[in-house]
């Protein structure tokens, strides 16, 4: 008989700028090596995943990371006392810090995770990217944190217009002159604080890789993708799996150098000379992970098995030229369900 795991998954916001939760759950439901009961973790009452009863068995509200680790832990402890959760897969950027901090305590109450270490999580931050590149010998665009508008007039060597002005956590705009840069600086710093990162703009084509590292330097999975259709929010609405040896080599190098643990997504730019730059490292499974599943690499399944201490054979192949095409779907939901989740915090 197959094992059965109770797995808690967050990021059920399958909206136009989607969280990865629903895709992760689909992957887990198709896992060959185990059966699952899925516990959804939701921050808001209208996250679509809450109402997808064929995918999610039960959903609980969890407190925002801003209310502190203690509150989150207490809530998870309570949920686990009812559901006996074996594994948690957090999928929001903003909650990762808290879950990484809680890793040991969660394990003590029987909940496994498979997350990057705090060091890995911190090192790959946007404002640390140049040092990250140097340390691990990875190609990254030149960038520098700046603290005042005046710093825009003293651009470091190798950075010239156009350049990218980026916020500490989110937001980025491409600017073509100092006026635009100033305005972007002010807008982004008002929202996300300082520093602002100015980054060399690399002309080229964007590619993505999703993968999974075992924490010992081995690549368990890696699937490269080219976005085919991008929404006005910059999200892929369609993409295709590709065969690019260079991208796979780069991914292997990233994993072996950093000993990356857990799922990740690399945002890459290929310039005119066919060199790849790492633009960003997302320390979690991306929303388009179901493409990886569809081409033969079930990343969430492997991630669960790694967390549970099972032996996991690395995926070596995948189908090339398979596409994912995202679509929106209207569910019909009774207000009773909305009442349940919003007043009792459970559905």
């Amino acid at each position: 008989m197959k094992k059965k795991y109770n797995i808690a998954v967050s990021g059920l916001n399958a909206i136009d700028s989607p969280g990865p939760g629903v895709a992760v759950i689909r992957a887990l439901r198709e896992a060959a090596s185990f059966d699952v009961r899925i516990i959804g973790l939701a921050y808001e009452s209208l996250e679509p995943g809450i109402y997808m009863h064929d995918l999610v068995d039960k959903t609980y509200h969890v407190p925002y990371p801003t209310t502190g680790i203690e509150n989150l832990f207490k809530r998870l402890e309570h949920i686990s006392s009812i559901e006996k959760i074996d594994m948690i897969i957090p999928n929001f950027d903003a909650e990762l810090y808290s879950f990484i901090k809680l890793e040991k305590r969660l394990k003590e109450i029987g909940m496994h995770t498979f997350l990057p270490t705090m060091k890995q999580f911190e090192e790959r931050h946007k404002h640390n990217l140049p040092e990250f590149g140097k340390k691990y010998d990875l190609h990254v665009p030149r960038s520098e944190p700046i603290y005042t508008v005046n710093d825009l007039y003293r651009l470091p060597e190798g950075i010239e217009y156009p350049l990218v002005v980026k916020g500490k956590y989110y937001d980025a705009s491409i600017v073509y002159n100092s006026e635009q840069a100033k305005s972007a600086f002010n807008k982004i710093s008002a929202k996300w604080g300082l520093p602002i990162i100015i980054q060399e703009f690399v002309h080229g084509t964007e590619y993505n890789v999703t993968g999974l590292g075992d924490g010992k330097g081995n690549t368990i999975s890696a699937v490269p993708m080219r976005k085919q259709y991008i929404t006005d929010k910059g999200k892929a609405w369609g993409g295709i799996s590709i065969a690019d040896k260079k991208m796979l080599e780069l991914t292997d190098k990233f994993i072996s150098q950093t000993k990356w643990r857990g799922g990740f997504e690399l945002e890459l730019m290929k310039d005119k000379k066919n060199d790849f730059y790492i633009l960003e490292i997302n320390p979690r499974i991306p929303a388009w992970v179901y493409l990886a599943v569809g081409v033969g690499q079930n990343i969430p399944e492997a991630l669960v098995n790694l967390a549970m201490g099972e032996k996991v054979e690395p995926y070596k192949t995948y189908d090339i030229g398979k596409m994912f095409i995202r679509y929106a779907y209207d569910m019909i939901v009774d207000i009773k369900e909305f009442e349940q989740i919003s007043t009792y915090g459970e559905l």
Binding site: I335, F338, E339, Q340, S342, T343, Y344
Partner: peptide, 17 residues
């Protein structure tokens, strides 16, 4: 108002607690 303290206004479509 329901037992849970949930109020739905069918005219405006708003929900309250």
């Amino acid at each position: 108002v329901s037992e849970s303290g949930f109020v739905f206004n069918p005219i405006t479509g708003e929900s309250y607690s």
